[in-house]
Amino acid sequence: MKIEGTFKLHAPINVVWDYLLNIEEMSQCIPGIDTLEMIDAQSHRGTLQVKIGPIKAAFSGIVTLLEVEPPDRLVAVIDADDKRNASKVKATFTAILNADADGTVVTYTMDVNVRGRLAQFGQAVVQSTARKMAGTFSGCVQKKLNSSEAK
């Protein structure tokens, strides 16, 4: 399934880009993230808890940066599983940054493949969960950018 969305950050494109690529900083804004450790420059291993409808899922897996084209294009692949729910998720994540008059518009596309028990939740439920997470994420990033600007 495809999950798409945009959010806007009130900061110049190069500031946003640097922030998003600072994985350690950026990951603090991902809702539900438990741990994230660096394997090498391209890969990180992490765990993420997310509530999908009535179900609490805990994913652990690896995120690999596939294409990094400063300052506007980023592609990553995510390969994770949730042992308790016997489910696997493979996703390709693409983010495109566009500068506009008063900030940066981030457009993201996720091609998600869910297998196992969690797959019974259709696109609608997963998409809505993802959209809410993106909203929380962008709000948090904006706050962090504001506070670093203030310094």
Binding site: P54, I55, K56, R84, N85, A86, R117, L118
Partner: peptide
């Protein structure tokens, strides 16, 4: 049903 399918614990 959700218990049976082990979706909730």
């Amino acid at each position: 049903l959700m218990l049976q399918q082990r979706l909730i614990a």
